[in-house]
Amino acid sequence: MDSFVSKLVLSDVPSYRVARHVLFWVVCWAFFGMLYGFYFVVDPLLAFRISFTESFIFLPAHIFLSYGIIYGVLPNLIQRDRYWSAFVVTLVLIVMAAVISVGLNHFVVTAFRTWMHFPIRHTTVFYSFMGGLRGTMTVGGFAVAIKLVKHFYVKRIETEKLEKEKLRAELELLQGQLHPHFMFNTLNSIYSMALKKSDHTPEAILKLSQLMRYMLTDCRGDTIALNKEIQVLHDYIDLEKNRFGNRLDITVNVHGDIHQPHIAPLLLLPFVENSFKHGANEMIEQAWISLDLSVQQSQLKFKLINGKAETKGVGTHSAHVGLLNVKKRLELLYPKGHELRITEDADLFIVSLTLDLDKIKVPYP
């Protein structure tokens, strides 16, 4: 039913366009027929026969004004910012519609009443002209109002569609930037293992292939099961643990129901990757990382702490590509559903993320 109504109102298919125009004029005819049926102080049955007949006779004047504005003034003048011309032409159309109404009243209505032996109303040309102005402007105003409402509604739908397409393009661009950045860092890690002739190199290559498969196949949708995203974190951590060996102290704690919720793919991995690249990699002595992830209902809390080598200056604005990327993705995907705090000092880096998983803004519904 909703689909039929939306097609009847919005569709440009000729059959639906004709149907909605016919429906509008039938409603106008019925409205004025009922309205003026109570105007005549005669027999009720005769009064409604007169009112419905005359309502039909005056329709051409209403149609002339309505379509003149809708298909003449609006597209050719208003939409081209020719407002004064539109004002003048509209006034001319109103006067012409009133003149048509006068002609219909004095020639058609009078002749019809005479033929049907109905009572004849004797009105002056001025009174008939004013009555024509009132009727045609009322119907024309309703018709134009409906057309404008429909126009703004269609424009709003088009604007929303363009915004979603823009969002989709931005997300694809960001995710496309993330993949090469991640692959470059991971290959560097495997290269370091290969130089040391580590026995874990084949296993690391296998882990990398699994991560690539995940990125190329599972990450095509807008969301993915949270447990799969967490498994990718574990795979990446295992890959890095093979490289660091005993030089890395890492703890991972996961709590709550991780099987039901969904999350945007590759949203948490950049934080973990950053903790290794700009934390553990730069530490000469024992490197350490602590990761806590909990899920309660639809809210995810993610906290990542890692040590880092002391630097001369403390940067409050990180230039790491992965972090900049994920910040932008959070703004696009969870504009009202996330809180991200990043704290960095001389020897410590803390990421704290609270995410309402059900408040994701996907490009398409």
Rank of each mutant, 00 (worst) to 15 (best):
G245I: 01
K228Y: 15
P261C: 03
Y36T: 10
V27Q: 00
A86I: 05
G141A: 06
L46D: 12
I224H: 06
K312L: 06
Y36S: 11
H262V: 15
D356M: 14
L340I: 09
M183D: 01
L8T: 05
L268A: 08
G221N: 14
Y191D: 06
F87K: 04
Y16R: 09
P261Q: 04
L10E: 02
F48L: 10
R341H: 13
Y334W: 10
Y364Q: 11
E344P: 03
Q175T: 13
F58L: 08
R134V: 06
K327L: 09
R247L: 02
P365C: 05
E160D: 15
I63W: 03
F24Y: 13
Y127A: 14
S3L: 09
H234C: 07
Y214E: 07
K207R: 13
P202H: 06
G337H: 09
A19G: 04
F24Q: 05
V321Y: 08
W84H: 05
M116S: 11
L35P: 02
G135P: 03
F126W: 12
I350M: 08
L226A: 14
S290Q: 05
V109Y: 03
H122P: 00
F38S: 05
F129L: 15
L268M: 10
R49D: 12
F32T: 06
V88T: 04
V99T: 13
Q296P: 00
Y67W: 10
K161C: 09
T251E: 07
F129T: 11
R156N: 08
T124A: 12
I120R: 11
Q210H: 13
Y16M: 14
V109H: 01
A47T: 02
F48G: 05
Y214G: 10
L206F: 13
A19R: 01
R168I: 04
W25V: 08
K228L: 15
N274R: 00
V18A: 15
F87P: 10
D199I: 12
R80I: 07
S352H: 12
A225F: 14
F129Q: 08
Q296A: 07
I224R: 12
L333T: 10
